[in-house]
């Protein structure tokens, strides 16, 4: 099982039995008493390695909360969340930070780049924080695949939104994390730029055995995933293998009814 960051460079076996992350009876309550909001009501879910999983559901259904709690950005109120076989509910803040740094990657809706650093410096940021040196060939390849060659010495303010999101994707990919979390990565992009980003994520799963968990509202985006989980009112209510945009759209329509 790929729980050690040292093993990340070796090709990963793709058996379904291996899990990149999972949640067991995960519950999250915001606030207290009358004002309490039950964002997650006992979610149990597995994320197998080398799979691209999409999470969908109506607004406020708890998608972001689920992702954030599994990714160690926030803590569950009860239940457990695992990265590999590490129970992250028991980790200290410092341990969580190091776990994120060494094993996870993030792509946010608002690209969230550091405005003072160039594209390249932004991409290298997780390695810099870990005090590691980049593998130049791998860096070159990542930059090439996301289509940023020639633009990496620009500041974020000199890049378009799509280009900024490519930087964010490259930043998530470069350390070869066990698992990448993406919250509406194409939410702020036009359709064709969004498609480029999505197909690039797809290729990372197919060609490199990367594991990706993505929250999205867009049925077309979800169609790039291997599996779609449907969340409603803090619970998983449905799942769909090999989704297509039409089937997902149909399923989503049922929520509105």
């Amino acid at each position: 099982m790929p729980t050690q960051s040292a093993q990340l460079d070796s090709p990963r076996p793709t058996t379904d039995a291996q899990l990149a992350a999972r949640a067991v009876s995960a519950a999250k309550v915001y606030g207290e008493g009358d004002a309490a909001v039950h964002a997650l009501r006992g979610v149990t879910v597995d994320f197998p390695t080398s799979r691209f999983t999409a999470i969908m559901g109506p607004s406020g259904s708890g998608k972001s909360t689920l992702m954030q709690c599994i990714a160690g950005l926030d803590r569950l109120t009860s239940g457990q969340a695992y990265i590999g076989d590490t129970d992250i509910s028991g980790l200290s803040k410092q341990e969580l930070t190091l776990l994120r740094r060494d094993r996870l990657g993030f792509i946010f809706q608002q690209y969230n780049l550091l405005p003072s650093l160039t594209a390249k410096e932004n991409i290298l940021l997780p390695l810099t924080l870990a005090g590691k040196h980049p593998d130049e060939a791998w860096l070159h390849e990542v930059v090439k695949t996301v289509g940023l060659t020639g633009r990496i010495d620009n500041l974020p303010s000199q890049l378009s939104g799509g280009q900024q999101q490519r930087v964010a994707v490259a930043r998530a990919l470069l350390p070869r994390p066990e698992l990448i979390f993406a919250d509406e990565p194409t939410g702020a992009l036009d359709t064709s730029t969004g498609q480029e980003i999505l197909s690039f994520m797809r290729r990372a799963v197919d060609e490199r055995g990367q594991t990706i968990v993505m929250v999205t509202h867009d049925p077309h985006a979800a169609s790039y995933a291997d599996e779609v989980l449907f969340l409603e009112d803090g619970q998983i209510v449905d799942r769909m293998d090999s989704p297509t945009a039409e089937r997902v759209l149909d399923r989503m329509k049922r929520f509105e009814g």
Binding site: L73, K93, Q94, T97, L98, R100, R101, D102, G105, F106, F108, N112, L113, L114, P115, L125, P126, L129, A130, R171
Partner: peptide, 16 residues
């Protein structure tokens, strides 16, 4: 703040 939070999300420790 947001910038610092991003740093923290991708693995900067409070000490760093």
């Amino acid at each position: 703040m947001r910038e610092l939070a991003v740093l923290s999300a991708i693995g900067a420790t409070p000490k760093q």
